[in-house]
């Protein structure tokens, strides 16, 4: 497969103040990235370690879209499930039903990515932390398989004791080719107010990646290269229902667009359009028909002209 969405899949369900749980919604970084890739190309697959229950939850969506399961490894009884518990006052907390240990056990390894990549694989998406040992192994895989990588930042948590947070990123980012982060994460790692797009983008431009998708929430996103930054506001495809997974899906789509050789303006249009499709319902886009794929391409060309004033020419 040309493109791979690698990493965790995880589901969530909402529990109300009376302990009543709602339906299970499938998701997780790699799965949302997969839905994004599938919106633009059928030449993609999921690479993850899953619970045996994935078939009952993710299986039908995979089958509906004709996606290969060849790189899904069943390694435990259960996929990760988070319960979002809402309190009477509207506040909420979340808890992993099967625990963080299960999540860690199911983490995608560099060795798994290597095994999943074939001769025609061009690039992969992965949300990942800054662990240097992991990245060293990943670099070897990338070089061996000649792959490009989109890194969606897993930002160090305030409770982590890992040294300088920006330096940790600088230590590994040269291994990635594309990068994605949101404004809260950028503000935290660069110590710049999140409303200050210009200064943050200036810092991003100094980093050694070809393209960064800098996501500024409801406002939209920037495609940033070492020499330019193109802004595109959020795109509403229909009604906005649930933003969960918009960051992952826009990141997966940006990887596809960049590796297809599209310019930064089209990269950010494709990213935002994908988020527009993702936000239209709870969970993934339910069915990506050929018509929807065609519709997405048509809209992308329209938005490209809107933000650049030029006709799109590939």
């Amino acid at each position: 497969m040309k493109y791979m969405a690698c990493g965790n899949i995880m589901s969530d369900m909402v529990e109300d103040a009376h302990g009543v749980r709602g339906p299970l919604h499938i998701g997780g970084p790699a799965f949302f990235a997969l839905t994004a890739l599938r919106l633009w190309t059928k030449d993609c697959k999921l690479v993850c370690q899953a619970g045996a229950d994935y078939d009952a939850t993710y299986g039908s969506w995979m089958d509906l879209h004709g996606l290969s399961r060849e790189s899904i490894r069943v390694e435990a009884d259960h996929c990760t499930v988070h319960v979002l518990k809402y309190n009477e006052d509207g506040s909420y907390g979340h808890q992993s039903i099967y625990g963080s240990q299960n999540l860690g056990y199911l983490k995608t390894t560099p060795e798994h990515i290597e095994a999943a990549a074939s001769d025609d694989t061009v690039g992969f998406y992965l949300a990942q932390n800054q662990d240097k040992v992991f990245w060293k192994k990943l670099e070897e895989v990338k070089n061996k398989k000649n792959l490009k990588m989109m890194w969606e930042l897993e930002v160090p948590k305030p409770g982590d004791n890992l040294g300088d947070k920006l330096q940790r990123i600088k230590d590994v980012i040269h291994i990635a080719d594309m990068w994605s982060l949101n404004s809260n994460e950028a503000s935290y790692i660069f110590d710049i107010p999140k409303e200050n797009d210009e200064d943050i983008i200036n810092e991003i431009m100094k980093l050694p990646v070809e393209m960064t998708l800098y996501r500024v929430g409801k406002r939209g996103a920037y495609a940033v290269t070492p020499s330019t930054a193109v802004f595109c506001e959020s795109i509403d495809v229909t009604e906005s229902i649930d933003p969960t997974g918009c960051g992952n899906s826009s990141t997966g789509a940006a990887m596809w667009a960049h590796l297809e050789g599209l310019d930064p303006a089209m990269v950010v249009v494709v990213a935002n359009l994908t988020a527009g499709y993702n936000v239209a319902q709870v969970g993934p886009i339910p069915y990506i028909s050929d018509e929807i794929m065609e519709d997405a391409r048509r809209r992308a060309v329209e938005y490209y002209k809107k933000i650049t004033g030029k006709e799109f020419v590939k």
């Binding site: 963080s100 240990q101 999540l103 860690g104 056990y105 983490k107 948590k157 004791n161 890992l162």
Partner: peptide, 12 residues
Amino acid sequence: RHRSDWIQDFGY
């Protein structure tokens, strides 16, 4: 601890 979510590393 190095990582606040150390249990995840434990699983890894």
